[in-house]
Design a binder for these strands. Structure first.
Lengths: 248, 248
DNA sequence: CGACCCATTGATCGGTCTCAAACATTGTGG
DNA sequence: CCACAATGTTTGAGACCGATCAATGGGTCG
């Protein structure tokens, strides 16, 4: 059961148009993430996009490579990471449908990216994308909103790591992942963890053993319940510091 | 000695125009941070900006406040942070001249910001700024570049925190701060630390005691030398994992 | 010169890492 | 359909490192 539960139905013959999901900068009704692009903007992006499919474990890009394209995820989960010299991985983010993959600097990718599950994505050539953004200020503004959204997400990750105890980190992680891959079932939520424990550990800066121990300690506390190793029933704790919530 | 060493000379009567510093997205000669804006763009921003001065310790904005303006730092150092319920602070970034302060979401500031030193900044009203960006796609693209730059900086912070040992965190911090506030003196560099140990600790997710101990341990190793508690002579170590360097 | 903030140092405690091994799950081929 | 292999996951025991609590020392500014 390694696939996201909340999966949209879309026939393989007609994949969804490009889409950016983010919490808007301006005041909106609720502080939740919403699709930023209107139909015309999605069509504009589709005009320069080609479809790409990746099996689980495939690498979308590598740190230091010349950046020629970015990806817009339609379906599946991607992780971005860096490798240290001793082989340890530092996972920077898990990316979901509506996210962009391919942050670059000085013409080269900053991070590596790998498919955690099977992934379908739009491939957007950088050259064409920059021209489109230059001609369409509103679209450019949406990419700026998305960048700000990702910056806030990175800051939440920072705050997660700033907590010393494994318990808080794991709870914050579950809270984070539940926003993307969960399904409400009565008063509790079923949360699917698309990635192995090692990836969770590399994201939380914990050992896989500590992740496992902490999850089971939380089960004994009654905070969550295992349905399978990758699927848990989880009721968001309200005693988490409000500082970590999506919309402050 | 709490002020930045590498300080530009500018008469108080004619403050510098707004400026954005970042590593460009596109391939450039060296991978270093450079001013993004040309003279016309700086004048455009100056047209909507008003000058603001803050003494050390002044708060520029608070988490949750309605966002009406952002700041472009001309001189001084600002920290952005969040407070947890028990009063602990999580410092997310130290910001320097050429940086922007005031990340917001859903119309409200995400973080609090406070002047670490005396600060001079341009106040940019959000409403006017968005109109200017809408009319000037190139300027908009530069703000996108800056957002990507800040995202990469946040990821570097994440990787810093992912390291377990205090020694590595402190070395990475010194490397980071040296890019902004250092002066070459022969083969070594004089690095000024504008902030107290408690702020360093809150940025590194260490206790102030651990920061102090680690700095002195590094002095005993010969990696650095104290000139005063806030000024050290520091030669960038080459045995740091390359993963952390500014340009990969 | 004194008061306050900041920085440093010391001892104990606790939590996570590490190393090691058993167990479960998934996918594959006979 | 079952046996097997390869991941992936869980559990256990001891060592290490930074947090914590407490107290002293130093700098700076009024």
């Amino acid at each position: 059961m390694a696939k996201i539960i909340r999966m949209k139905n879309h026939p393989a013959s007609a994949p969804a148009l490009p889409s950016l999901r983010a919490v808007p900068l301006r005041l909106s009704s609720n502080g939740q993430a919403v699709p930023l692009l209107d139909e015309a903007e999605r069509e504009t992006l589709a005009g320069i996009a080609t479809l790409a499919r990746f099996p689980r474990g495939a690498r979308l890009e590598a740190e230091g490579e010349r950046a020629v394209q970015i990806y817009n995820i339609i379906e599946g989960v991607v992780k971005t990471y860096r490798l240290s010299e001793d082989g340890a991985a530092y996972i920077l983010a898990f990316l979901f449908p509506g996210d962009l993959v391919g942050l670059y600097e000085n013409g080269r990718y900053v991070n590596s990216a790998e498919a955690v599950t099977a992934v379908v994505a739009h491939r957007l050539p950088i050259e064409a994308l920059e021209q489109v953004l230059q001609r369409d200020p509103a679209l450019n503004a949406h990419f700026l909103s998305k960048a700000c959204h990702d910056l806030r997400a990175a800051q939440r990750h920072t705050i997660l790591l700033a907590h010393h105890d494994a318990r808080t980190r794991v709870l914050l992680f579950l809270d984070l992942i539940a926003d993307h891959a969960s399904e409400i079932t009565g008063s509790r939520r079923i949360v699917a963890l698309p990635m192995p424990r090692t990836d969770i550990a590399d994201y939380l800066a914990l050992s896989p053993e500590a992740v496992s121990r902490t999850l089971h300690a939380l089960e004994h506390e009654g905070v969550l319940r295992f349905i399978s190793p990758r699927v848990i029933e989880f009721d968001r704790r309200d005693d988490l510091p409000s500082i970590h919530r999506q919309s402050g």
